[in-house]
């Protein structure tokens, strides 16, 4: 069966979903990710869904539970790149995924994980403008 590849970048794992996932593929991803977090000791998981044209409640639930599981394994999950139409639809569907962190793109997502891992306040230095 197909598997969605998981890349390791430093302390983070990166998953880029590029196909219209069927349900088994989504469930396999959840299992694979859990195993990889445990094996690598990753502190963060980035799931790039910028290619996804829809997220239904099944995929939403998968994202939610990946976030919950990784939290228990001391890793932070960030879903990045959700499209506007997908976001509007998810809200209308009734799924706001409060337990999931989000970021506009992979770069911001990495920054988010970095901040949380370092444990520093987010607004420490304050660049003057």
């Amino acid at each position: 069966m197909d598997r969605i590849p998981i890349l390791k970048m430093g302390h983070a794992l990166l998953v880029t979903i590029q196909v219209d996932m069927h349900d088994q593929l989504a469930m396999a991803l959840e299992e694979d990710l859990t195993a990889r977090i445990a094996a690598t000791g990753a502190r963060g998981v980035l799931i790039d869904i910028s290619s996804l044209e829809i997220v239904d409640s099944f995929i939403g639930r998968m994202l939610d539970s990946i976030a919950a599981v990784s939290r228990l394994l001391d890793a932070r999950t960030v879903v990045v790149g959700m499209r506007p139409a997908v976001a509007i639809t998810l809200v209308e569907l009734g799924l706001s995924m409060p337990g999931v962190n989000t970021a506009l793109n992979v770069e911001r997502g990495l920054a988010l994980i970095g901040v949380s891992v370092s444990g520093d306040g987010e607004h420490d230095a304050g660049t003057e403008v």
């Binding site: 044209e53 829809i54 239904d56 099944f58 506007p84 139409a85 997908v86 509007i88 639809t89 209308e92």
Partner: peptide, 12 residues
């Protein structure tokens, strides 16, 4: 947006 809504509804 409407495409996404109906496709998502159909998926559910």
């Amino acid at each position: 947006v409407d495409q996404t809504k109906i496709v998502t509804a159909a998926s559910e």
